[in-house]
Nucleic acid binder design. Structure first.
Lengths: 245, 245
DNA sequence: CATGTCAGTGTAAAAAATACACTAAGTGTA
DNA sequence: TACACTTAGTGTATTTTTTACACTGACATG
């Protein structure tokens, strides 16, 4: 097994988290320094990405790179786009960066984007050599390459997927309150939902299991906690596929 | 502008059509001949695909290749996957084929899939050098490369998209009957729908405009024809985005 | 013990979903 | 010309879901 890099194919992970207030995304700090001093010339941020190894499949590479940069493993990951415009990554600072990893500037780089979802509270970011941190999706720093495009695509894809699947629950802890679930939907769709109607609707879903447990150490009435049961979801959702139009 | 091929990147179009009975897909016949005779050694089929040119973006390449092979232009096209497993296209006949177009067998080919939708009745396939024809999605011939995987992904993607958008109407003629629309949904989701309830539901949608026109030359009661108005859809659907959960 | 904060609850009215079977309007043919 | 064939088109009663809307409850903190 060789560990040669494929200089023409890269992957980026758009990793989303939800801190009960905002949708956030993981970014890596990128610092350019001059050759002589350690003073940075400029800094910006990138998604969690890199080139793939020759022996890897795309998702495998995405998971490996994510692990290398953040320590994060075993999260929900789904491919959502490939970008390969011939003029992308032609800005000077992008070229400098690519040279840095041995890329031939005459070759086109095709980048495949994955979006990742995780419970932001359960994940410890174990940063490697580079600084990785969470940013609110609607208050981002400058992004390198065409990562702004990539991220916009990812957000759209997340919205669509949330309408037709249960990935929302991968953004929450195992035990969550209905208010937290509601806020998640509100944040992602940018709307306000009626609390009583939301709860009525959700409680009808049999795959939301109420636990014998409440929040603790909150300075207000503690909320009933629920969990999502994928098992129940899969059993009860053969029906749902009839309701499709 | 160069027309050099990029041997590492290809695109495939999974072009769907609906003939009022079945979902169909466009395939190109692939014939291997020995060097000496014109007798084919074997034949199978591929999706509408090829390698991209160095100067093209992915969708641009997909449209160009589709046009070259079939004469089809200006259809709905949407990217749905990138496949790049290191072991793909390693079967002997795939390698023979790739050599044929000058591909170095040590390089990985990444292929980006687009699904296309069109009104099968309005499109004349103007075949070029190779034979292109429609096949029912559930009665396919042997496919080359990993095109079976590609196609399965495309079908899943089509189902998902049909739930959250209006692409269904791109599979129908401009003027269609409610029965035709119903059959389309039934075919794609593999269910049977109640005729009266289906019609009630659809007629409520303001973007379905009844025309002053009926079917003709049918040996039964001719159906009222409707059209889909994207304009009306876009106006009335700001609301819909509230109803999302 | 007062204040702040979020959790949690019910009802009436409107809209949508569901289940279900017959008549209407053409074409083709005897 | 009438009959057979085929698909279009229609209504109602019941159940379920959606909608709009405002107050009390439980905990932590000072």
């Amino acid at each position: 097994m060789s560990f040669r890099i494929n200089p023409n194919i890269s992957v980026d992970c758009v990793v989303f988290g939800f801190d009960f207030r905002q949708l956030k995304v993981l970014l890596v700090e990128r610092i350019f320094q001059s050759d002589y001093s350690l003073k940075p010339i400029f800094t910006d941020h990138t998604l969690i990405g890199n080139h793939i190894y020759e022996h890897e499949d795309l998702e495998e590479a995405a998971r490996r790179i994510l692990k290398d940069l953040t320590g994060i493993e075993n999260i929900y990951l789904e491919q959502f786009i490939a970008l390969a415009h011939p003029e992308r990554l032609k800005k000077e600072r992008d070229q400098i960066w690519l040279q840095h990893i041995g890329h031939n500037p005459h070759n086109r780089v095709i980048t495949v984007g994955y979006f990742g979802l995780l419970d932001i509270n359960a994940m410890e970011i174990r940063a490697g050599s580079r600084k990785v941190s969470w940013f609110p999706v609607n208050k981002l720093p400058a992004l390198a390459f065409d990562h702004h495009d990539m991220l916009n695509h990812a957000v759209e894809c997340l919205k669509t997927r949330m309408r037709v699947s249960t990935i929302a629950y991968t953004l929450l802890p195992k035990k969550f309150s209905l208010s937290q679930l509601q806020t998640l939907f509100e944040v992602i769709y940018g709307t306000n939902l009626d609390k009583r109607n939301f709860r009525k609707k959700m409680i009808r879903m049999k795959y939301l299991i109420p636990l014998n447990e409440k929040q603790s150490n909150v300075s207000h009435k503690p909320a009933q906690l629920y969990m999502f049961s994928r098992e129940v979801y899969e059993i009860t959702n053969r029906d749902l596929f009839e309701n499709i139009i």
